[in-house]
Design a binder for these strands. Structure first.
Lengths: 144, 144
DNA sequence: GTAATACCCCATTAAGTCGATAGGGTTTAT
DNA sequence: ATAAACCCTATCGACTTAATGGGGTATTAC
């Protein structure tokens, strides 16, 4: 299940992406528009900043802005940063690998093999969608 | 993340599947072989029984056995039963659908669309793998 | 420079889930 | 009848999640 932290993070990024021309976006603006607790959003954006997805400007007129071309910000990166591993088992995780304590041999473990396939197919989807694409889709409601 | 409940459940089913010719398999046998708490395993097998995947025979010489052809027991069914929804968001779940409280329109929600794709690709993998296939893979270590 | 704005950090809490344990009850084959 | 095996309920500690609260520090506009 996608945590609210992750969901909020994606919504916040989508908002920032859709208002890039306005300059840095303050937390208060996002939290109002997307109905997210100001304080909670603060920690989320901090994580995204540490992860190199956004940066921020302090002081009056400050706020958050994207650090990269939104077409190069992949959903897999965002989700990994906010939710941790994408794999359903640590022993098939690319970025958070850990050996199973019980499983003696990953080569012959059926669960390992299955979850490897699941991870690959999930990752394929998440890597092929960028923040820019997601933002476009979401803002379509404002056109009609 | 796959819960231990689900992991244990799959392991138990794999064990039962691999020892079908022995007749009903008692909990104690599985819990010993797979290193699972007897009591915990009990609740798991009960769930699987309620879900129509296994049945049980009481009394001396009793135990659990598969209710269907293992080639027709799909991993998607097992996981759904033990872990709940496969989808990462309730609003794209096939069997556990729930509307998002915040999202006003699923049609234009970028997260919805993305998670729909993820669900489809995950489900494709899980539906194409049966318990029989998984069991074969796991038991290969006993051959060499 | 100073006040307002906005980011940064730490600690706490309520609620919920997870893995496991305990104890007792019922059914059934021998 | 008795032992083996299934069934049910309740509880527990540890952990995670979502959210609050309070108090800073940096920076910009005026």
């Amino acid at each position: 299940m996608l945590s609210k932290k992750t969901k909020y993070g994606i919504k916040a990024l989508t908002y920032i992406c859709g208002h890039e021309s306005d300059g840095p976006i303050p937390i208060s603006k996002i939290s109002e528009a997307e109905n997210i607790s100001h304080k909670f959003l603060e920690t989320i954006l901090l994580t995204l900043k540490k992860g190199g997805i956004v940066s921020s400007k302090k002081g009056k007129g400050g706020g958050y802005y994207l650090l990269k071309d939104p077409y190069e910000i992949l959903m897999s990166d965002i989700i990994r940063l906010l939710s941790g591993p994408i794999a359903m088992v640590p022993c098939v995780s690319l970025n958070f690998y850990e050996k199973c304590d019980d499983c003696p041999d990953e080569e012959t473990c059926g669960i390992n093999r299955l979850m490897l396939e699941v991870r690959d197919s999930t990752l394929k989807v998440l890597r092929e969608k960028s923040l820019a694409q997601l933002t476009k889709q979401s803002s379509r409601q404002n056109i009609t």
